[in-house]
Nucleic acid binder design. Structure first.
Lengths: 225, 225
DNA sequence: CGTATAGTCAACACTGGTGTATAGTATACA
DNA sequence: TGTATACTATACACCAGTGTTGACTATACG
């Protein structure tokens, strides 16, 4: 029979493509079930590749897991900052509304990548060396240094808050909302609320004089000291 | 030999205690590896209980998983709001600094519970029926209705942002920081930054007139319309 | 055409979890 | 003292994943 999947039939002649397809499948499994349940068999199945082939590319399960983590980290940086760094050569700062919009769109379009990335940086022990994280923090710092953000921000904590919210929101939404339209609506709600929050905060200042007294309204104004 | 773990030795005569111990172990496994890799064998081992005993309490792996999820949801509510609802009978609103401090302390003291809970509500399909989530949202709404919070907040989104950050911060910290002292310091940084954020936002308003024009500084003031 | 390369296929020994069953033991309690 | 209960210990059949091996085949390229 003219079956294209008959015995010995190669789907593909380019090893690099196969390599990527396996990694992509591994990423999907990783995002779905977490790192503990990543199996070579399942990944090969999902990649539409023979189990033996997977073992040719990644000798052990651990190798596959490690390679996937590295790949996720690299891709997260490339996909988000890749075509971004070229464009924004001018020392114009990317406006926060656009930055937020971009991040939330990215998260909505790449839920697996976002989730796998988060799983990984969240659980990897020791100093955070991830490139995406470092770039994100650095850009935030620059934004503040240029006087656009309040200078009393704790950049790392703030980066954590905005990133974890933005990247996990689509997953929350996916679990609790059906249909593309409502997902888009939910994305918009997130961007709006986030923007509202960074613009005005959440408390009514007059009702919380003791907090203002304690924390002071220092920073953010041009005249800092 | 006078070995207390000789054959047939019962560790415990109260089935309810055993039941709880198994659930507690399951919670730990769940928080460590996620729901996909929860095994009865591993849970029994961790609970210091015979595998057969675990199967007497929970006929299948699925039963155990389901029971654990329910238990986590209930405990999350009880542990956080249990002794809380009694105290705050007066219609005084709990000040936000204390609320935040309480939440972040809770998350730091109960990382497994927080993480398992989050995993669960994050991935359970359909309407969110979780009691803790609903109470959290309701209290936020009340806080706003009483005029303490800005009335243009999108409560659900805001609840998501604050909860996900507060509950996952300790896990992030645990992965990247050693020692109790530095963990306490990190907790303080989180509370401070969060409080700063809800008080003043993150942007310097004068630098973002177009955003203020677009979103307007409505709400939060007493005279709303 | 010949050959190296990339992938398929099947079989195997091994590990570790599932779910069941059965015999045995410690404790509480009537 | 007897007996029900709660747990231990062990064995078994089954399944699914791991990692290895060896034979096979399609494709690219000299």
């Amino acid at each position: 029979m003219a079956n294209s999947t008959r015995r010995g039939r190669r789907n593909n002649t380019d090893p690099e493509t196969t390599h990527r397809e396996i990694l992509q499948a591994a990423l999907e499994v990783l995002a779905k079930d977490g790192p503990e349940s990543l199996s070579v068999t399942e990944v090969a199945r999902r990649a539409g590749v023979n189990r033996g082939t997977a073992y040719q590319h990644f000798p052990t399960r651990e190798d596959l897991a490690h390679a996937t983590a590295t790949w996720v980290s690299e891709r997260m940086f490339e996909e988000f900052y890749g075509d971004f760094l070229e464009v924004s050569e001018e020392n114009e700062v990317y406006p926060p509304s656009l930055a937020l919009d971009r991040l939330s769109k990215f998260a909505m379009d790449n839920p697996e990548l976002s989730r796998a990335w988060w799983f990984d940086v969240m659980t990897t022990e020791g100093e955070v060396t991830d490139r995406f994280w470092k770039e994100y923090v650095a850009r935030l710092q620059e934004f503040i240094d240029l006087g656009h953000g309040r200078d009393d921000i704790d950049v790392e904590v703030y980066a954590f808050i905005t990133l974890v919210s933005s990247l996990l929101w689509p997953i929350w939404v996916s679990a609790h909302t059906k249909g593309k339209k409502s997902k888009d609506r939910m994305r918009q709600r997130f961007v709006d609320e986030m923007l509202r929050l960074v613009l005005f905060g959440a408390l009514v200042p007059e009702r919380h004089p003791e907090l203002i007294a304690r924390y002071g309204d220092k920073g953010g104004k041009r005249g800092k000291g």
